[in-house]
Design a protein around this nucleic acid. Sequence first.
DNA 1: TCCAAAACCTGACAATTGTCATAGTATCCC
DNA 2: GGGATACTATGACAATTGTCAGGTTTTGGA
Lengths: 229, 229
Amino acid sequence: MESRCENCIIRQFNSLRAMSKEELKQVSDTKTTKIIKKGESLFAEGDKLNGVYCVRNGVSKLSKLSANGKDQIVKLASKGEVLGQRSVISQEITNLSAVAVNDMEVCFIPKDAITNTLQKNPNFTLEVLRHMAHDLKEADDVIVNISQKTVKQRMAEAFLYLQNNFGEDTDGFLALTLSREDISNVVGTATESAIRIISEFKKKGLIHTSGKKIGIKDERKLLEVVEGF
Amino acid sequence: MESRCENCIIRQFNSLRAMSKEELKQVSDTKTTKIIKKGESLFAEGDKLNGVYCVRNGVSKLSKLSANGKDQIVKLASKGEVLGQRSVISQEITNLSAVAVNDMEVCFIPKDAITNTLQKNPNFTLEVLRHMAHDLKEADDVIVNISQKTVKQRMAEAFLYLQNNFGEDTDGFLALTLSREDISNVVGTATESAIRIISEFKKKGLIHTSGKKIGIKDERKLLEVVEGF
DNA sequence: TCCAAAACCTGACAATTGTCATAGTATCCC
DNA sequence: GGGATACTATGACAATTGTCAGGTTTTGGA
């Protein structure tokens, strides 16, 4: 296992690449690597985070519990993403919980190394800022999608999103397999509705399934559904 | 009119307070003050922004057009808020449009003064980052609200939000008067639905109205509606 | 391997919400 | 001041979506 951040390829994908050699060395000296099994949680809503998590492998769902007891998945984070930044930056408890969707390998970086660099290295801070600006833009898009599109449109969009961001396996199924419940929590609908729409899409030849695996069969038609046809 | 940023009180409310005397001076030398009338726009979705807008007076709605032609209002920005930061930071076209809800006075700050400071003054960058972290957290809350609460709950929440953030006038009406359409675009519903719920709330004694003005009559009951009773 | 638990699926129904149509009311501009 | 225009309001209806209730299949652990 690569154990020094200086040599870690993952770093190229996130804001840590803007750190200097010295700073990276400090991070590497204080970080610890953890294995998180599918279903286990990295942190829960309301936790005070003492550092950030850098995802080396696997996928985590970031979700927020609503008053009626349903989770809303706000983001799916995979290789290269850094979790918990916001909480560390604003020094507040976290408003999201992070649970592993499949087995994960993450590095925990204590916050001191991060906050020190934030105060001293404008390049790093700016890099983090750019990432957050991007996240915020995406969040705006999600808001518009959820409020203006039908469940069917959002379901179609979700499948295309999963394809674009996580790819397909060799059998043509989406590489990231989510439970029906997780899918419904991404889309923001009842599990039964999600299942019903999956059945409908299957009947219409837009997708195919095998167990909980889902594959995209007709991307063009799926796009048409997103557009409202 | 206060014309030097160094003396501007508004600055205390936003990230500009982290600028040095020198940097502020540069900002002040390049900025221009504009009057934007109700209904006029600061910028539109897709515009390339050459600077940011600092709100001195009035309120602007930040919205995004959806495929079906409806606007979704993502944020209401008032005194002290800086608009267009995200676009300038990520050097992308803006994903939102900004329209004045009432008469506004804003300062336009060309981006050079901002980007220079971002690269040199970590305190400023960190301050901007903190603001953005906060916005992102709020956006997450909006996502959960929209997807998990009923329109009625969100309407009640919207009124309480308007009360908390913009206050009431001397007659007990919400200080920020929005059209029914704007309200529906904040909540993410059809205008008719919004109007119907306003009528219902009025009938039940939760609010009172006069023309397009709305006042909160029974905050406790309104809160109960939000909670789902 | 087998059993229990969890996940998936479907039907029936009700509640919520959007759409269309229509009418009253306020507002703005000439 | 008056007329056009935008905004507010309400009814009727249909579409969407959630809920409950029941089955079936899959999965994971003893």
